[in-house]
Amino acid sequence: MYKILAVDDDTTTLGLLEFLLTKHGYEITTCNNGQEGVKKAQQIKPEVIILDVMMPEMDGIDVCKKLRSLPETINIPILFLSALGQDVEVMRGLMAGSDGYIVKPFEPDDLLNQIAKLIERKKDSK
């Protein structure tokens, strides 16, 4: 079973992701702040990390950069999921080292497809 880590400060979003991903056979771990997210990522080493951008204290961009600097998490695919849909922010997210960017509110199918793609890619590159 593939592990997914979702980091978002909004609990409703986390609730939705939990249901959705569980329904589709993923093992999901959630946390609602960036620092915890980094810790958890190191611990769990999930297949994909879903990351929100706008979070207090440590925002998604920083989390991503951090994850990319740690050897345990450097290779984990990161998918940004954020209400900030401007190109600038998307670019920012991509340049921080993420592998994708989905804008909220999202089409659940889109998300699921993206996750599947990322895992496929990871598998292939191995």
Binding site: T12, T13, L16, K23, K104, F106
Partner: peptide, 24 residues
Amino acid sequence: VSHEMRTPLTAIKGFVHVVLNEDA
């Protein structure tokens, strides 16, 4: 405001989708 509004929208949209999909 847009950002704030989108966040709840995510849940709404998501769950409606889930329910409509008869996953619930």
